[in-house]
């Protein structure tokens, strides 16, 4: 990131709408590592994650006119596109079979330290260590696997209100780290 220039989100959005090459470079240099990190932690597959990152950038580029700054920061909006796209991919048939066969190598087991050839976030590990098992589980289901609240409630056999309050507890704990 040896780019001295800094965009505010507002200027960046305007520049992306103007399809500026420089804005793409900036967007990519500054945001792609986080987007790829989130995608990878959903898919756990390097090749599929690289493909997904490409698709996500095309989506961001072509859908920037749908971005509404009163509803989310640009960063949040992009992260949600990336995560939702990865989750869709995860649910697509091919990945699903692959995933099932990997003995549910999901985020929760992932936390318990299996070694990937792809680099995993050190920061993530540290953050996750601070969560108790119920909170990890809820973040895994909702954030990394894209379950709806009612799906989680059913899966874990807990009331909907409990699902929500666990999400809040988990995010509050994460917040303390920053």
């Amino acid at each position: 990131m040896n780019q001295p220039a800094t965009y505010t989100e507002e200027v960046l959005v305007a520049e992306i709408k103007g399809k500026s090459r420089k804005a793409f470079e900036y967007l990519y240099d500054n945001y792609s590592p986080a987007l790829l990190g989130v995608i990878y932690n959903v898919l756990h597959n390097e090749e599929a994650s690289n493909d997904a990152l490409q698709e996500v950038f095309v989506k961001i580029w072509n859908n920037i006119h749908n971005y509404d700054p009163s509803k989310a920061k640009l960063y949040t909006w992009m992260l949600n596109i990336a995560r939702n796209h990865a989750i869709d991919k995860l649910r697509s048939k091919a990945m699903k079979t692959d995933r099932e066969l990997r003995n549910d190598k999901n985020f929760v087991s992932h936390i318990n330290g299996n070694v990937s050839t792809f680099v995993d976030g050190i920061g993530l590990q540290k953050l996750i260590d601070g969560l108790d098992i119920e909170q990890r589980q809820i973040i895994d289901y909702i954030y990394f696997q894209g379950y709806t609240q009612s799906e989680v409630a059913e899966e874990l056999n807990i009331p909907l209100g409990t699902v929500k309050s666990r999400v809040r507890l988990a995010v509050n704990k994460l917040r303390k780290h920053f």
Binding site: E25, S32, A34, L35, N41, K73, Y75, G121, G123, L124
Partner: peptide, 21 residues
């Protein structure tokens, strides 16, 4: 909450391979 989740995402950051850009 957005700031927290943004920080959570950057904690997961992975640099993409050079040719991807």
């Amino acid at each position: 909450i957005e700031d927290t989740l943004i920080a959570f995402a950057t904690a997961q950051a992975i640099r993409p391979s050079a040719n991807l850009k």
